[in-house]
């Protein structure tokens, strides 16, 4: 009886896994195959004679290449560092200091963040960055992206920090360590997986950001890939499907590689599961 049930459950498991692979994988097939084709199509076609011509053509576009090799990296790494550091500090403070109304604060922040990433705030944000003299500079984009991503990052980090026992920190405190030393030497090593999750998450967000760089950057040689991809459009506003798909694939690879690396080294998961 038990055995029979186990077999059923493993058959069900495989069926489910196959369905999941189909559901999640099929929309991506086109992206993986089309760049190697020589004929543009919206259909998934396995290239009969795979070609690298499309990639060669993409590399002719100086700005698009620069977007990937330089601008995207600056924006994404800058945002990632800022968000991870500041969120760790803030989450630690929210968890370890008795700050009045800290739960409400975390939630209010989440709410505000949905406004800042929304479209209505683009105008004031533009004016603020303008006032700081940071229009057309990557730093302006990075600052705004940090501001937009911080609340969620704090929210996620807080859970990781809450889940680690405070006893090590208490003993460090008794032996006279300063609060910053405790944070750096005792608490941070324990929340490293959490920092990695936040790092990947904020890197991914900055890597794909479209609206904010679009509004704040001006020079073609500073634009990230999300906007540079539209330079593969024709005059009529039609995408050149082969070039767009080739560029899209190149644009996607770094986040995939980054994720796989982090997942392999640290494991990418929420530890306790966010629950507050």
């Amino acid at each position: 009886m038990k055995r029979y049930r186990k077999r059923i459950s493993s058959v069900l498991y495989y069926v489910f896994a196959v369905l999941a692979i189909a559901f999640f994988g099929l929309p991506l097939l086109w992206l993986i195959l089309t760049p190697f084709n020589s004929r543009a199509s919206l259909a998934v076609e396995i290239p009969t004679a795979p070609t690298l011509d499309n990639f060669r053509a993409v590399f002719q576009n100086k700005f698009a290449v620069q977007a990937l090799t330089q601008n995207n990296l600056i924006i994404a790494i800058g945002t990632m560092l800022g968000v991870t550091l500041i969120a760790s500090l803030a989450a630690y403070a929210l968890s370890r200091a008795r700050i009045p109304g800290r739960n409400a604060m975390a939630y209010t922040l989440m709410l505000f963040s949905s406004v800042v990433t929304g479209t209505a705030a683009m105008v004031p944000i533009f004016l603020i960055i303008m006032g700081m003299g940071l229009i057309d500079q990557h730093l302006g984009v990075i600052l705004v992206l940090i501001g937009g991503n911080l609340p969620t990052a704090i929210f996620m980090m807080r859970d990781f920090v809450d889940d680690i026992p405070a006893s090590y920190e208490e003993s460090a405190m008794i032996s006279g360590a300063s609060p910053f030393q405790i944070f750096k030497d005792v608490a941070l090593p324990q929340v490293r997986p959490g920092m990695m999750v936040v790092a990947v998450w904020s890197f991914v967000n900055a890597w794909g950001a479209f609206l904010i760089p679009f509004i704040l950057l001006r020079s073609s040689d500073k634009l990230p890939a999300s906007t540079a991809i539209y330079s593969f459009y024709t005059e009529a506003g039609t995408p050149n499907i082969l070039l767009v798909s080739a560029y899209a694939l190149l644009y996607t690879l770094p986040v995939v590689v980054f994720y796989l690396l982090v997942n392999w080294k640290y494991g990418f998961r929420f530890f306790g599961g966010i629950k507050r």
């Binding site: 999640f24 929309p27 992206l31 990947v200 999300s226 899209a248 996607t252 995939v256 994720y259």
Partner: peptide
């Protein structure tokens, strides 16, 4: 695979 669907850039 599921996580990739989540992290691939919007435009793509």
């Amino acid at each position: 695979l599921v996580i990739l669907c989540w992290i691939i850039p919007d435009v793509v």
